[in-house]
Every structure is written in structure tokens, then in C-alpha cells.
């Protein structure tokens, strides 16, 4: 995209989307009007347009999908009562939801055959060519990407290393992957134990991999790294951990160039920065897969100590950006404050 094209595209976006782009890029973006916001965006990204472009496209896609969803899945998001009661008078704001609508639709979905999500396919397709970062909400199905990518690598006779931040998580994954791939094809390395280190899939904490890479660089190798085809780093938002984050950086810096990197992360604010960083140090440009949509829609409620439940927001789902509270939860909360702030009668 040329700067002009980008500017035109930005100009037709809603202001709220521009503000989302402005986060982390422009100090006090919320003070700026649309025109100045676009100028500031272009200025602040003068040296790195790719990040802005990919974010813009991702946000535009998000917006589209949010618009289609209510029609596509009418059962999970019951229509708000407003649909039936549209009268001649235009209302300034949508009427607030009620508890009944809020609690409607709870249940178990019909079992359906497993169909990978488009973003899962996208990640796997790109992994054939480049490093990939996946930054999607909790519980979206990142493990599927890890498993499928592992399967493909093993089929191509490459070895795979899967790292997690915690020993407990390594253990769970060891059990899970042993069931999937067969116990003889999965090994685990911890600080004090090494089981089945010649298996094509090795599970370890990130610290252990970092140590392996240092040993390899220093000339002592005890796990074969030359056939390594894929390194999966789960929960890579740990990059920002005050004590341990440095280990993720070391591991990524020293990850063998012939191996692909797959970074799986919960939603973070700037995955495009990580992608740009990887692109700057790795042999192939890194592909970013990112979205903020929750697969299972989430609603927020307020429960008063008396057991009374109310929707937290005026809308059934959780709104984006600025939110106004439901009048009932507002009332309950001020009641709570009044009750608890009263001097103790003892």
C-alpha cells in the first residue's frame, strides 16, 4: 500500500477503529480528531508501515465479522427485545437488556464434526513457508495449530520441540501428546530428568530449550538439533514476564534458522511488534495471525451479596471500548457501597 492509499483507507474507517490503531502508537490519541489522528498515525509509523497495515486489516476484518455474527448464529446471541418493539420514535440509545435476555441461551451446543477455524488453517498454511505468531483469546484452540503443525513436521521427518512456561503445563501436554502421537514418539526434558530424548517430539520448559541452545552453540550437543524443523513456544506472552521474559528472547535469538518458529500467545496489545521483530532477525518474514473475537460469546453480570443478579452492561454481550453500566447493576453497586460504608453497628 502506498501512503496515499493507506491514507484514503484510513479516512473511510470509523473513528473508533482509528483510536484502536492509535493505542500504543500515539500518546493521547483520544484527544485527537479524525483528521489529526490519521496524520499522527501516518507520521508515527513512517518507518514501519507494515505493522499499521496489518493491524488495520485485522481490525477491519474483525468489524466485518462482528456485523455478520448475529445473523449467522441467531441461537447463541438472542435478538434484543428492541427488534420487536421498534416504534416510530428513534431512541438515542438502545434500551438496556433485561435479566431474562441476559440469561437466555445457556446450554450445551449440538455435537458437530470438527472443522478447523479459518485462522487455524491460515496459521498452518503460512507455517509451511514462514515463522508464525498466533495471538488469539484464551480458549480459542491454539493447541490444534500446535498439534497439526507437529504432525506435518513429523511426517516430513523433522523433529519438533514444544516449550511451555511451566513444568505443570509440560506435564499435561506430555500426557496429551503421548495419547495423540503414541508414547514412543514423545519425550520430555525437565531440569532434572530426560525421558525418551530421541523421540521426534520433545516437550520442555523454555529454560531447558535455552540451555540446550547454549550448549549447542558452545559445541556440546546432547539433543540433535540439525533435524529440528519446528519450535513451538506456547504462552509466549511470557516474553513480558519481569523475571523470565529474557529466556524467551534468548531462545528466539538463538533458535536455529532452519527451524520454523510458531509462537502461540494469548491476546496481547502489540503482536505486530513481535512479528516485526521476528521479521527483522529471522530468515523469513513472520506471519501474524491475530483476532480478538471470542469463540464462545462472553457476557458480564453483577451479583449483589444478597444473591441478586443483574447484567453488568446495557448490552447483552460485552461492549468494546467505552461501556455504560446497566442501570440495575449501577443501583445494586451503589446500594452495596452505601451498606458497606456505613459505620459498623457493634
Amino acid at each position: 500500500m502506498t501512503t496515499d492509499e493507506l491514507e484514503k483507507l484510513l479516512a473511510v474507517q470509523p473513528v473508533s477503529l482509528l483510536h484502536q490503531l492509535g493505542r500504543g502508537r500515539i500518546p493521547r490519541h483520544f484527544r485527537l480528531g479524525k483528521r489529526r489522528l490519521i496524520e499522527a498515525l501516518l507520521r508515527s509509523t513512517a518507518t514501519n508501515r507494515a505493522g499499521l497495515e496489518s493491524d488495520l486489516l485485522a481490525l477491519m476484518k474483525d468489524g466485518d465479522q462482528q456485523q455478520i455474527r448475529p445473523q449467522a448464529q441467531p441461537r447463541t446471541e438472542p435478538a434484543s427485545p428492541r427488534r420487536q418493539s421498534v416504534s416510530g420514535k428513534p431512541e438515542p440509545a438502545e434500551p438496556a437488556t433485561d435479566l431474562k435476555a441476559f440469561l437466555e441461551g445457556i446450554g450445551v451446543p449440538e455435537p458437530s464434526p470438527f472443522v478447523p477455524d479459518p485462522w487455524q488453517e491460515e496459521a498452518l498454511a503460512h507455517l509451511a513457508e514462514t515463522d508464525v505468531i498466533v495471538s488469539v483469546p484464551t480458549g480459542s484452540g491454539k493447541t490444534y495449530v500446535a498439534v497439526e503443525a507437529t504432525r506435518r513436521a513429523i511426517d516430513a521427518e523433522r523433529t519438533v520441540i514444544y516449550t511451555s512456561p511451566l513444568k505443570a503445563l509440560s506435564n499435561t501436554k506430555f500426557t496429551e501428546f503421548s495419547k495423540l502421537f503414541g508414547a514412543d514418539r514423545v519425550g520430555i526434558l525437565t531440569g532434572d530428568r530426560r525421558d525418551n530424548t530421541h523421540a521426534p517430539l520433545l516437550i520442555m520448559t523454555t529454560e531447558i530449550l535455552r540451555n540446550l541452545l547454549y550448549d549447542a552453540a558452545g559445541g556440546e550437543i546432547d539433543v540433535r538439533l540439525d533435524t529440528l524443523g519446528l519450535v513451538i513456544m506456547d504462552e509466549s506472552q511470557y516474553l513480558a514476564d519481569p523475571e523470565r521474559g529474557v529466556v524467551w528472547e534468548e531462545t528466539i535469538i538463538f533458535c536455529p534458522t532452519q527451524a520454523r518458529l510458531l509462537l502461540l500467545s494469548a491476546s496481547i496489545g502489540n503482536p505486530q511488534d513481535i512479528a516485526a521483530w521476528l521479521t527483522s532477525i529471522r530468515p523469513t518474514p513472520c506471519h501474524l495471525v491475530r483476532h480478538n473475537r471470542r469463540t464462545v460469546p462472553l457476557r458480564a453480570g453483577y451479583l449483589h451479596p444478597s444473591g441478586k443478579l443483574a447484567p453488568l452492561f446495557r448490552s447483552v454481550g460485552i461492549p468494546h471500548g467505552h461501556a455504560s453500566l446497566h442501570q440495575e447493576s449501577k443501583r445494586l453497586f451503589s446500594q452495596y457501597e452505601a451498606e458497606t460504608l456505613q459505620p459498623r453497628s457493634r
Binding site: V108, P109, T138, R294, T295, V296, L298, R299, G301
Partner: peptide
């Protein structure tokens, strides 16, 4: 979001809830 994100199990729930209690 990490806390609230645990609500709503894929394949087991049509909708998840984050309930705030004071």
C-alpha cells in the same frame, strides 16, 4: 481478560459468563 476468558468452554457452552461480585 485472562481471568474472564476462562468462561465459556468451546464445544460445551453456547455462552460464557463473567460475574462480578463485590
Amino acid at each position: 481478560q485472562q481471568l474472564a476468558g476462562r468462561a465459556g468452554r468451546r464445544g460445551k457452552d453456547l455462552v460464557g459468563f463473567a460475574v462480578v461480585t463485590p
